[in-house]
């Protein structure tokens, strides 16, 4: 093989390696993206903590509780309280209620975030039903706890010191991927006229 051919082959191999590396990075972005949001709190991603620092001052903030259910999950899901006023740093317990309206056992998972989105890094959850899948038997009703605190730094950060209300929002989805949806999809959904 001539020197030129060898050199061409080597460069081509190196460039192909680059391509493979970029594909790898694309797939690596999946866990990295989740990790990035968890670490930085971007997008209203709450933090996870093990222990609250305890109330540091009398400064208070209002927490509101929002509950949503994906239409494919046959549950009634709501917050037990609309809002609470909490002290910064103080460990707080709140409840959500869920009831399975179906005649069969149904498993759901919850996704969650907080608004305003910039409050994400300062909302820390200690215990949450959202950490695990929940299975409810037919007709079963349960109370689900959320233990959290607000990091006192929220009022020292210039970007967030204007926050007076933080809303914690959950949406429950069915845990299994929808096999029904493909057949049941309305064929005329997309042909809707004005």
């Amino acid at each position: 093989m001539s020197g030129r051919t060898k050199s061409n082959r080597r460069l081509a191999m190196a460039l192909s390696g680059f391509v493979a590396g970029m594909v790898g990075l694309a797939y690596a972005s999946v866990p990295l993206y989740e990790l990035f949001c968890q670490v930085t709190g971007y997008g209203g991603t709450p933090q996870v903590a093990t222990v609250a620092p305890g109330p540091v001052s009398d400064k208070k903030i209002v927490i509101r509780f929002d509950a949503n259910t994906n239409p494919k999950l046959p549950w009634k899901f709501k917050a037990a309280q609309t809002e609470m006023t909490v002290k910064l740093g103080e460990q707080t317990l709140a409840f959500y209620e869920a009831q399975n309206l179906d005649r069969e056992d149904v498993t759901g998972t919850a996704v969650f975030n907080v608004t305003p989105l910039k409050a994400g890094p300062y909302f820390s959850k200690i215990e949450c039903f959202c950490f695990t899948e929940q299975t409810l038997t037919a007709g079963q009703r349960i109370d689900m706890p959320v233990q959290f605190f607000i990091d006192p730094e929220i009022f020292t950060d210039p970007d967030t010191k204007d926050v007076t209300t933080v809303t914690l929002s959950y949406t429950f989805y069915p845990a299994e991927p929808e096999e029904k949806s493909v057949d049941a999809a309305e064929p005329d959904n997309k042909r809707k006229k004005s």
Partner: peptide, 11 residues
Amino acid sequence: LLLALPVLAGA
């Protein structure tokens, strides 16, 4: 092309 297209391919 080398840097951008593989990311599209992954996605």
